[in-house]
Simulated assay, not measured.
Amino acid sequence: MRVWRQLTDLVARHGSAALITVHDVKGSAPREVGAHMVVRPDGAFHGTIGGGQLEFRMLDAAREMLAAGRGPAWIVDQALGPDLGQCCGGRVKILIETFDKRDMEDLAPLVAAEDGSALFEVECRMEDGRVRREISSTVGDDRWAGWHETHGEVRTPVLIFGAGHVGRALVLSLAPLPFSVRWLDDREGAFPSHLPANAKAVRLRDPEAEIAEAEPGSLILVMTHDHPLDMAITAAALKRGFPYVGLIGSATKRARFEKRFRELGLPEDTIRSLVCPIGIPGITDKDPAVIAASVTAQLLQVRERGGAVQNLSPLTASNDT
């Protein structure tokens, strides 16, 4: 979640908003330091600090603070034990802040930094009961005597070739997740009129150029309407050595493509790296939404490991016939 963008949008629309942050964790807790919730005056919210009684109580506190008007920040020191009905066993400090339109100028640099593509560090300290934040130009300056926060998000680039039923389902499945999607199809009118915020639709003109210009850590999914086009895109992607190259298809399709890849001179280990069929082994339902969910889980595994798919038998399922 882009917390500063979300916060300023809610302030602009509703006049005020609260920010709940997991400030410190000792032992076991449902969320990590830096987890956020943004709360509207009516109690609606975005994000989570882990659910359960802890989240319920912090939401109540945020609503009370918003009802009282912009004021000092609260830090709640809470044990995650029997009094909450939670058995995590750890202890957390929760920071709750309120904002209104007077804060928009101070929030603007944070929104601008968050709109970039990288993580950024913020120096924080308490001033007159409220948190003052400065982007990391002052890191190392002892006068701050406060703490650091890390904001922003690193999105893994995903190229999806093909805007058919599975492509559409996959783009929707990836929408709330830390991926940046470049969605490509060579057909006019192939894309829906509305796209998720993390997706960009591109009319495919030159498949090899798209592969050549893709970031090295991109994840590639090939599912076009045309098998020769699939072949060309997949071969180019395998030659580049991306951490994940997935091709929708059956065992028969894979075998045919492998034969052609050998004729093109691709090494055997490169050919073996192809993920086809795509998705988690053992899920065989061919409904587009099911395939999309399975592939999304697989991409999250690859992202978590920072590398290629492991322990996957490529012939355990089929995405088409």
Rank of each mutant, 00 (worst) to 15 (best):
G306L: 06
G306F: 07
D185S: 07
S218R: 00
A145E: 15
S318P: 01
P314L: 00
D24P: 09
F261W: 03
A255H: 11
I49Y: 11
A12T: 08
E123Q: 09
R182N: 13
T48F: 04
G140T: 10
M126N: 04
P243N: 09
G306H: 06
V181N: 03
A79Y: 10
E64H: 13
G85D: 09
A73D: 05
G90Q: 00
F120R: 02
T296I: 04
R57M: 08
M223L: 15
E268C: 04
S173M: 11
K93N: 07
H46T: 12
V33T: 14
L110H: 02
G51K: 06
L84Y: 06
G47P: 04
H36L: 07
G167I: 02
V181F: 10
A255P: 05
R262Q: 14
A308N: 11
A79K: 12
L195F: 04
L107T: 03
L19Y: 06
E134N: 03
F191K: 04
L274E: 02
G15Q: 03
G241N: 13
R168H: 15
L177Q: 06
K259Y: 12
A35L: 12
V171R: 00
H14Y: 12
E213R: 14
G47A: 04
K101T: 15
R256T: 13
E268K: 10
I20K: 00
S137P: 10
L119H: 13
W144A: 01
G69N: 05
I96N: 04
I75R: 07
D226Q: 11
V290Y: 00
T150V: 15
R143E: 13
A175G: 07
A317S: 12
A67R: 15
P228Y: 08
A175T: 09
D142A: 14
S218D: 07
P196Y: 01
E32T: 11
V33Q: 11
F99C: 05
A12Q: 15
D186A: 11
R182G: 12
G249N: 08
D320R: 13
E215G: 09
V122P: 03
G189Y: 05
D142L: 14
G265Q: 12
T150Y: 12
M104S: 15
G241M: 11
A62M: 04
Y244F: 08
V290N: 00
P30N: 05
A108G: 07
P228Q: 04
D60Y: 12
G279D: 02
